[in-house]
Nucleic acid binder design. Sequence first.
DNA 1: CTCCGATCCTGATGGC
DNA 2: TGCCATCAGGATCGGA
Length: 268
Amino acid sequence: MPELPEVENVRLTLQNILPKGSRFKNVQLNRPDLRFPFPDKLAEKLKGQTLLDIRRRAKYLVFETEKYFLISHLGMTGSWRALEAAETHDHLVWEFENAPTLVFNDPRRFGFISLYEKSVTPSHFVDLGPEPLSDDFHADYLFQVSRKKNTPLKSFLLDQKTVAGLGNIYVCEALFMSGLKPTRKAQSLKQVESVRLVKAIKEILKQAIKAGGSTIRDYKNAEGKSGEFQQRFRVYGREGENCRKCRKPIRMIRQSGRSTFWCSQCQK
DNA sequence: CTCCGATCCTGATGGC
DNA sequence: TGCCATCAGGATCGGA
């Protein structure tokens, strides 16, 4: 489900729901695990903790309390939302002293929650590449890390070590916007092309964040609102439809088990 | 080390 | 209507 723009919108809406200083009153686990077991003694540890900030790194949400970084990954179908009252079949329920109850639900259970003392760097973050919207992500960087990479551009950009936060939708859209063919080897990237590609990635992500992310099927932010960016897709999910630029039919191929959508006329 | 396929899991959808 | 196959926004693991 959620790539960087969706997770960023979940973060923004969570910030509206939970003011800084909200204190955990009760934590209820309705099953022992999601993708991984819930952290040991999660409920006991969180009770009484005060929420200091809600951040995002790549596709991870980071809840900061006095003692902990609590990491939430949404997998494909994970969602946070505010509830008026408790009593629910959701997987995780958080009650606060002075804020609405928050629930996490994840039908496919590819998401997870983990908890770290603040002195520890969460293991999920160790091998992550730069944030795509930060100054650390620039054309020289992308050009350098693409040298000797024999993998297709598509897989290269999906790899969170290259740049952290892109998923299937935004990789397809960024490759279209920059006019690059998804099957090309990463090492074939020219310097001028890496400039175009970095610009396209930043542009697409900014537009998508502003549009509230993309809702293909069931994505909603924490306030229950769907995204709008799917209305502006140029290639994703448009197999057989005409390219908005050249009118040639959009193609779909399979790369590393994922669908790739692209235009054979516009992308070289 | 690099790269790819298989895998975790449920639910929605389309063909017969 | 019912049943089965296919597909899905992600990340990790193991083998080639």
